[in-house]
Amino acid sequence: MTAVSAPTRTKHEVAKAADLPPGARKIVKAGRFQIGVFNVNGQYRAVLNICPHELAPVCKGPVRGTMLPSKVGEYTWGCDGEILSCPWHGWEFNLHDGKSLHDPKCHLKTFEVLVEEGTVFVLV
């Protein structure tokens, strides 16, 4: 039986960390992917720039908070700065795990992000 080697991933430079402060984003080409890299309250998150609904450039949408599930008649704001909303139809995705807020099976493809010596990289 042939040993299967782990797939090798390539590091793609995104930006200097100083140029990607909390709340900022950059959309980069990495290999065959277009990826949005976001600074989410100090943590870097990267997702594929394709919405699973109608294939919109989801990473161009606004990032904000949202209303958390609550009792009838109550409104609770949360996840501030963590929710990416598609610019076409407003579908909401949590940038921490890529999952949509309306269907756990519906999610954005996520990528790992590294910071080395002040530079942000995405692993593809």
């Binding site: 919109a56 949408g61 909303s85 076409w88 139809h89 407003g90």
Partner: peptide, 9 residues
Amino acid sequence: NPIGVTRPD
């Protein structure tokens, strides 16, 4: 409409 009527992009 929290999304806005005109697509932001």
